[in-house]
């Protein structure tokens, strides 16, 4: 399977609270709460790091999980979040994606 790149939408406001990322979509005012592993993926979504590398660095290196399980879970999570429009997915790196801790005004 070819690699993918993920970037956070700019149409959101996000804050981390108690290890969980809280995200408000500016498009439809939907309010999302991510668990700790999902938050780690979200924070690593800089648009330039391949998803396979994010799985290793943000998930497998930090949490006790089999790499294949982590990859499958992250793939499903990314697909679901992209359907809600707050995570952008591409087969190429994004030019002007935001880096940083994943929080946004």
């Amino acid at each position: 399977m070819s690699d993918r790149y993920i970037a956070r939408s700019t149409e959101i406001a996000a804050r981390i609270l108690g290890g969980e990322m809280m995200i408000m979509s500016a498009v439809d005012s939907t309010f999302f709460t991510l668990n700790e592993v999902a938050t780690a993926v979200w924070q690593a979504a800089d648009g330039r790091t391949p998803l396979s590398e994010i799985v290793v660095r943000a998930v497998c290196d930090q949490f006790e999980v089999d790499p294949e399980v982590a990859r499958a879970d992250v793939d499903a999570f990314v697909d679901e979040l992209s359907r809600h429009g707050i995570l952008l997915v591409s087969d190429r790196p994004f030019d002007n994606a935001s880096s940083g801790p994943g929080e946004a005004a």
Binding site: M24, D28, S29, T30, F31, F32, T33, L34, N35, E36, V37, A38, A40, V41, V59, D61, Q62, F63, E64, V65, A70, D73, V74, F77, E80, L81, H84
Partner: peptide, 23 residues
């Protein structure tokens, strides 16, 4: 005698999930 070393210091894993509500 059993060798845990690899996972030492790692946090328990939970499937990445989110919940959402229409504000």
């Amino acid at each position: 005698h059993k060798e845990s070393a690899r996972s030492a210091g790692k946090k328990p894993y939970h499937k990445p999930e989110f919940r959402f509500e229409r504000a």
